[in-house]
Design a protein around this nucleic acid. Structure first.
Lengths: 358, 358
DNA sequence: CTGAAAGCGCTTACAG
DNA sequence: CTGAAAGCGCTTACAG
């Protein structure tokens, strides 16, 4: 009662208040606040409006602006599991960095690969006038972009559209495969090089979502085989990893290989977890890394540092992918294309030359 | 020209269209669409409006609704690094699961601990009428909630407000510390139990953001020391880990301990990475885990599985924390309180009884 | 150079 | 039970 003028829920200050205070029309205030110089407003009006806005602590209501203009300054990352899984969350960081510079905000939703959920979330997002969609997948694969997005700018992040269209940002897995093979070749390996990570017969994906075939597998192998062929050699063989590419299954796969009597000199593992498991199996068999067997893997996860020695691994360029995808979202050029982002080699201590002798 | 009626940018269908088609007023259509039964509309009107909406494929414009009602059905996760760092991203998953059930969408922003960036992002979020904020930190610590949020529902996720107020959801680190000690006590350990992970003198945080003191360190130690005291014993000592709690520094710390002549029977490591490094140092010294030295750690990250044997670790309950925080955001009861979420033990093979003999 | 007016698509008292 | 009207806070032709 005493202090009087402080309402319990203080009305937000609007453009009306600013115009009133500055003694100009609402239009003039609007032009100043949105920085439009094409209206030939006097410098003095500019200054007055700016000052009034400052004094009143004006912040424009973006909901109103969105309703009027149809643009919200927001973007959605729609993915299967990206935003909530540690594996690929660095892509979110890249996207966020880029969007922050563009003053755009990011919605994140995970659909868990469920169509009805995806459809509901997309409706909800579209009803909020999002300006674009980053359609992402946790691992590189082919996807179907929902038709409801046909009038919205979309960039595919870590996936390819099954209709061959769209703008995609994916890792350059083929070159990564070549690099893996080249690292071994340069160390002097020619024979007894095995690949660890084939799918069991009849299986295309892992247990999380069996029908999703990872592009990484086919393309990494393609690169590996090409590089070996160019060097006049080839893989000694390929080891199946059951179920998922995790430590336990990697260990079992390599234990099986060794039990079969094979004597590998180098293993190219489909990912870091399998390579860690491979390391365990080798040690259990009395073999040392890299003296007896060299190891190289893919993904560049923190697991690679847990190996002893640290694994030489070829990293998924998640940060750069996220950045590029977000930046392409605001590119006016919408012609379908695929950007392959290079995968950097992260050197470890798991590669040495082949032992001479038996 | 032939097909005629398909405009290139098809106007979204609005409530007006629905009302017109159903032959009712806009109000009636609105009441039906928002499911308000308190207007005693006839069942027939309900059916007609529903049918019209269905036929036209009506989806309400939520921007308009937000402008009118002031509620947007969106929430923001504002954190230092949570949404883009693999370590704590599971909290996002928990929040998302809960929000999805409430038909709420999530904005994620990372402030990198920079105040001016946080302030800009918060303004941008508030200008979009977000309904609430999950104010989160990557690791458990004390924070200052920005005053600009005073009129917005806030839940602190993995942090505590330095003014003692607010609603917080944090891991129960003290009990976790007790559990770690108890696991060793139950295995028969009484003496030569060391803690690995103290801060160097004069340092309160890691290198990412030095002034941020992790609550985990003080509370885990508190729990450990209490449990040991209750069992009539105490730590043999505490080992400083330089810089960050990573594998390399953990290895160096334990190598130093062994070089000093200490003969630990059990190590309680401040996190999994340090424990992995500890394992390397032990092996290098010819000591076996768990036969010669038992290991227990905290966090429950995938790294724990990379150990050989797998580490027994006490996990951060990130998923549950995210869920609870999101659920508290819509709780009308805003009285300040702290929820301590239990940290589950993830059994590994790194604990055994103390060796008898010297 | 400025100002009155329409309209983005909703919700919600209010009068009938 | 229904309908005409106001208004949320902006932007933007358009007339002066």
């Amino acid at each position: 009662m005493a202090s009087g003028k402080t309402p319990s829920s203080p009305r937000r200050v609007t453009l009306n208040h600013v115009a009133e205070r500055a003694g100009v029309s609402r239009s003039a205030a609007s032009f100043v606040m949105s920085g439009r110089t094409d209206q030939r407003l006097s410098a003095e009006v500019f200054a007055r409006v700016r000052a009034a806005a400052e004094e009143l602590g004006y912040t424009p209501n973006l909901t109103a602006k969105t309703l009027r203009t149809g643009r919200s300054g927001t973007v959605a990352l729609v993915s299967d599991f990206v935003s909530t899984t540690s594996f690929a969350s660095t892509m979110v960081r890249g996207a966020l960095e880029e969007l922050c510079q563009r003053d755009s905000l990011l919605f994140t939703v995970d659909t868990h690969g469920r169509e009805e959920l995806e459809s509901r979330l997309l409706d909800s997002l579209l009803a909020r006038n999002i300006d674009g969609v980053l359609y992402a997948s946790m691992f590189t694969r082919s996807v179907t972009v929902p038709p409801v997005l046909k009038d919205t700018p979309v960039v595919l992040l870590n996936c390819l559209s099954d209709d061959g269209g769209g703008i995609s940002v994916i890792p350059d897995e083929i070159s990564a495969g070549e690099d893996a093979a080249r690292l071994l070749l340069e160390a002097g390996h020619v024979r007894d090089i095995w690949f660890v990570g084939s799918m069991p017969p009849g299986q295309v994906g892992g247990t999380i979502w069996p029908p999703w075939a990872p592009l990484a597998l086919s393309e990494r192998r393609e690169g590996i085989e090409r590089a070996l062929r160019n060097a006049g050699t080839s893989l000694a063989g390929s080891v199946v990893v059951e179920e998922d590419w995790d430590i336990a299954n990697g260990r079992a796969a390599v234990a099986g290989l060794l039990a079969s009597g094979a004597r590998p000199r180098a293993l190219i593992c489909v990912n870091d977890a399998v390579a860690i498991g491979a390391g365990h199996a080798l040690r259990a068999a009395g073999l040392r890394v890299p003296d007896d067997v060299s190891l190289v893997s893919f993904d560049g996860t923190p697991l690679a540092q847990a190996g002893e020695p640290a694994l030489t691994t070829i990293a998924l360029p998640h940060l750069e992918m996220g950045r590029r995808a977000a930046s392409l979202l605001s590119d006016p050029d919408r012609t379908p294309r695929r950007l392959r982002i290079p995968m950097p080699v992260i050197p470890g201590g798991s590669i040495a030359g082949p032992r001479t002798g038996p």
